[in-house]
Nucleic acid binder design. Structure first.
Length: 484
RNA sequence: GGCGGCGUGGCCGAGUGGUUUAGGCAAGGGCCUGCAAAGCCCUGUACAGCGGUUCGAUUCCGCUCGCCGCCUCCA
């Protein structure tokens, strides 16, 4: 069974057949580092991280390149506002991006590339396009001539005629066709610039991705993506540049993520309805945020609201509770998480306790990363596991064995999604000691049947965010809630 | 105006031409508990509307209504 993905250009779900057997090359448009990212930006990157993790889990050797766009009008603007040089802006927001993404459990791409480190390559590419008759100079600018590229519009499914008739494109002086886009912009006073055969200036928005992706991954690499809103013009233009310059196919599979919706409107910087990733992480924690992002599948739009985030938080809490309870029930026989699980496509498939859950998880994720269905398999596993806990605690050998098997599968599946399910940081030694002491007091009250006193202790702790559960093996506690 | 997508029970969100339920959250009932909590069991009879195809459609086709995305910087 192969992995299937929805491919934007073909507008269909197709089998993923990598250019090189056993290897996947993927490229993602990373941030333009001029601002803190919002949860929509973050969700797309988290999903790409998940795609990468899943492909590795399925046995592929993945090379994942991400770019940071660190030359752009917005950066220049921002530098003026903050009164610092553009490099100050980019380094500040690059760090902020990496901090946010790390809080969301993504691991850095195999290779991170910066536009400013590849200006020379871009100049060479632009000259190449001019030489091929696909670009032309107009004053200090260089424009891509879309009418000379056969197939312009094939990714986004639109024709030049459609676009010409649209009244939203403003013709610029010097452009031959209103859709022609800038490859090189001449420098204005006080802007960062680089030398070029056409005079000092800086590259246009799209050229860096064409140049850097093909430099490191070659033409015809496997997966390229970003949010749906990048399909046009960004990816269309990347395609026109790369294929126009090099010939052949640029990208085998275009994979685009659905956008985050805010009250039935997309979240977007231009609409001004953004919620910063940082703020959501602070309120709900990175793991809840990641759960929310992944619980809706890659292509569907995710609804941002307190309700959907609260749902995610409670669902995750259910998993944590299971992990903890199963661990207690099995004591030292409890399996530990491995650092790297692998289920290559070539595997005959799992056997033994919990195998059905692995199978369901795999077939769901193989099917265009249907995470919603994959999560359901984990939830079903948890229910079955919870049923076994009482018996396992009693010492029933059969149930212990089954529970241990299920727990092992649970650890595997949640680790593929990079959920650590760790207890809250408040769970420190001092706090632990104090809570244990209060529980001892409560237990002695209970043994004297002084329930009023016992309940008072429990209520006070609950108010403080410490949940108490009495189990046959004694009371248990944990820090609950969303950390507010 | 052009192109694309969607409309599932209180909310989020999978899926399918027909019999057995996606799953989560919330709600109600029960078990367990000193009482709780956690957990388990049960319950809700949902697929925008109108036609059509079909023995049978939530699932296919058409139309209508509503919503969303792209067409301009945007993940």
């Amino acid at each position: 069974m192969a992995i299937r993905v929805y491919e934007s250009r073909r507008r269909d779900v197709v089998e993923l057949e990598p250019r090189d057997e056993g290897r996947i090359s993927m490229y993602a448009c990373g941030p333009t580092v001029y601002n803190l990212i919002h949860v929509g930006n973050a969700r797309t990157i988290v999903w790409y991280d998940q795609v990468r993790r899943y492909l590795e889990y399925r046995g592929y050797d993945v090379t994942y390149v991400m770019n940071y766009t660190d030359v752009d009008d917005k950066i220049i603007e921002r530098a003026k506002i903050e009164g610092i040089p553009p490099e100050g802006v980019t380094s500040k927001y690059t760090q902020a991006f990496e901090d946010d993404m790390s809080a969301l459990g993504t691991k850095p791409a195999s290779l991170i590339v910066r536009a400013t480190d590849h200006i020379g390559d871009m100049v060479v590419a632009i000259q190449g396009l001019i030489d091929k008759g696909l670009a032309y100079k107009a004053e200090g600018d260089v424009w891509y001539e879309v009418e000379n590229f056969d197939g312009y519009g094939k990714l986004s499914g639109r024709s030049l005629d459609d676009m010409r008739s649209g009244d939203r494109i403003e013709p610029s002086p010097g452009k031959k066709h209103p859709v022609d886009f800038a490859l090189w912009k001449s420098a204005k006073e006080g802007e960062p610039s680089w030398p070029s055969p056409w005079g000092p200036g800086r590259p246009g928005w799209h050229i860096e991705c064409s140049v850097m992706s093909t430099r490191y991954l070659g033409m015809g690499f496997d997966i390229h993506g970003g949010g749906r809103d990048l399909i046009f013009p960004h990816h269309e233009n990347e395609l026109a540049q790369a294929e126009g310059l090099n010939g052949g196919e640029f990208v085998r599979y275009w994979v685009h993520a659905g956008l985050v919706q805010m009250e039935s409107e997309k979240m977007s910087k231009s609409l001004g309805n953004v919620v910063l990733a940082r703020d959501v992480i602070e309120q709900y924690g990175g793991e809840t945020c990641r759960y929310w992002m992944l619980a809706s599948s890659l292509r569907s739009q995710a609804v941002f609201s307190d309700d959907t985030l609260d749902d995610a938080d409670r669902s995750l809490e259910r998993w944590r509770t299971f992990l903890e309870a199963a661990g207690h029930a099995l004591a030292e026989e409890a399996p530990a998480a491995s650092s790297s699980y692998r289920r290559p496509l070539s595997d005959p498939g799992p056997e033994g306790t919990g195998a059905e859950f692995i199978s369901r998880f795999l077939s769901s994720m193989d099917d265009d990363f249907n995470s919603a269905k994959a999560f359901a398999a984990i939830h079903d596993l948890v229910r079955e596991g919870n049923r076994l806990i009482e018996g396992a605690q009693r010492g029933d050998e059969g149930e212990r064995k089954s529970l241990a098997g299920l727990l092992e599968v649970f650890l595997e599946l949640t680790s593929v999604l990079n959920f650590r399910l760790e207890s809250k940081p408040e769970d420190s030694k001092l706090v632990g000691g104090l809570v244990e002491y209060l529980l001892e007091l409560r237990e002695s009250a209970r043994s004297e049947r002084a329930f009023e006193r016992a309940d008072e202790i429990r209520e006070r702790l609950t108010e403080l965010g410490v949940a108490i559960e009495d189990t046959p093996a004694g009371p248990r506690w944990r820090v609950s809630g969303t950390g507010q």
